[in-house]
Design a protein around this nucleic acid. Structure first.
Lengths: 231, 231
DNA sequence: CAGTGGTCTAGACCACGCG
DNA sequence: GCGTGGTCTAGACCACTGT
């Protein structure tokens, strides 16, 4: 029942949580740990893989295994048209692209429609923790440049509805690399589509947040007359 | 860049998606596959582990590796006090427990408060796919028995607000076993807390849905005066 | 360069499912 | 009992990071 790797993982987890191995610190090398626990290196590595999947340990090739700092939890608040984490450092890259494939479905536009893409990576100090790709039809966001407010004002088109679809999935190779997480650590993926009163999609956003530090909160108010709209 | 396991996984994935290996079918044994791809068994197993994590293949000890049937996607609709998947077979177990630990925080009740627990496992035919644990203070759900409607009527206490918190995490050992998913496949975890107009928590639910087949949708309607009702 | 993790091998033995 | 997957070993060699 209790395989060696679980015993080792439990022991290391305990050492981390009790502070015997502090956050940010490097673990002994895999060879040393394997010797200490008298197991082969593949076995020890599989134990570390468990801690990786939990987001507790980060492996850095050529350097070692490091205890991850207890990251502050990222809270995504649903129902808001504004960026998920407004008061955050983030590097934004703006590109002009044309709609194709899945984006056409999301934005309900024909293939080739000019779009503005915001590729946004949120940081907390050195560690990245949020990846957002926002797509806006260019005719609705006329002249957005990196110098201006990166999040285009939407007052011009009154917002009618925001639909957010969430799922848990493994990160793509690109997402794992960008967010510096293990490819085995699931991300919380949020697809947000905002439509205006005319039924046009004014914004589609695809967000990926590491599962170990993200949570999304949705609050639904029910009025006294029990108007059960929604779904 | 392209490690052997990825090449093998890509090949098997292609064979599955093109239908050369059909859903429900058993793959050749790991020994056979290892021979076919001229790799060692651990390498082949690590390739299968990738497909497992994607939810494409299910391993059954002593029997073999099976291609999972393309499960219909489970859609959880946010903002509703009713069970997430109403028209579904589900086995419900009702227990009377007393609040402790995390439940006290969730339900905002002191330790020892009598609760009714609904342990609910939703099925689609033979395969389980949703695990829900619903907790209700017993004084608010006076006489609920398995024979009655399992979901207590809430008309007595007008609902004011529902807060749903979502995160992506690995399943607990119990969840993985109950849902028959690999422990490496993330679940979408939803914690739903419903409060009535008096501010009391009338229901707290903890749901776990396999990440490969679940998505949660939240719709937010914005009225002209930008009043943030729910959805 | 030395030290680290990344990948892979060719076996071994154990645990499970089924006839 | 036999075939299956589950776990583990004791190495090997490659790739990356620092000095």
């Amino acid at each position: 029942m209790a395989s060696r790797r679980h015993v080792i993982a439990d022991d290391l987890r305990a050492q981390i949580s009790t502070g015997r191995i502090k956050a940010g610190e490097r673990l002994p090398s895999e060879t040393q740990l394997a010797a200490r626990y008298t197991v082969s290196t593949p076995t020890l590595r599989s134990a570390l893989a468990l801690l990786q999947a939990e987001g507790l340990v980060e492996k850095v090739h050529g350097k070692g295994n490091f205890v991850r700092r207890p990251v502050q939890r990222i809270t995504y608040r649903g129902g808001s048209p504004t960026p998920p984490t407004p008061a955050l450092q983030s590097s934004i890259r703006v590109t002009r692209i044309r709609a194709r494939g899945h984006l056409c479905t999301l934005l309900r536009v024909p293939v080739g429609t000019p779009l503005t893409e915001f590729h946004c990576l949120s940081h907390d100090g050195t560690s990245p923790y949020g990846l957002a790709r926002v797509y806006i039809p260019r005719d609705l966001a006329p002249a957005v440049t990196p110098d201006e407010s990166p999040w285009p004002a939407k007052e011009a088109t009154p917002l009618a509805e925001i639909e957010e679809t969430l799922c848990a999935r493994l990160p793509t190779a690109l997402e794992a690399a960008t967010l510096r997480i293990s490819p085995t650590l699931a991300v919380l993926a949020i697809t947000r589509v905002a439509t205006d009163t005319a039924g046009r999609v004014v914004e589609a956003a695809v967000l990926a947040i590491p599962g170990d530090r993200a949570e999304a909160i949705f609050t639904t108010h029910h009025t006294a007359d029990d108007r059960r709209t929604e779904g």
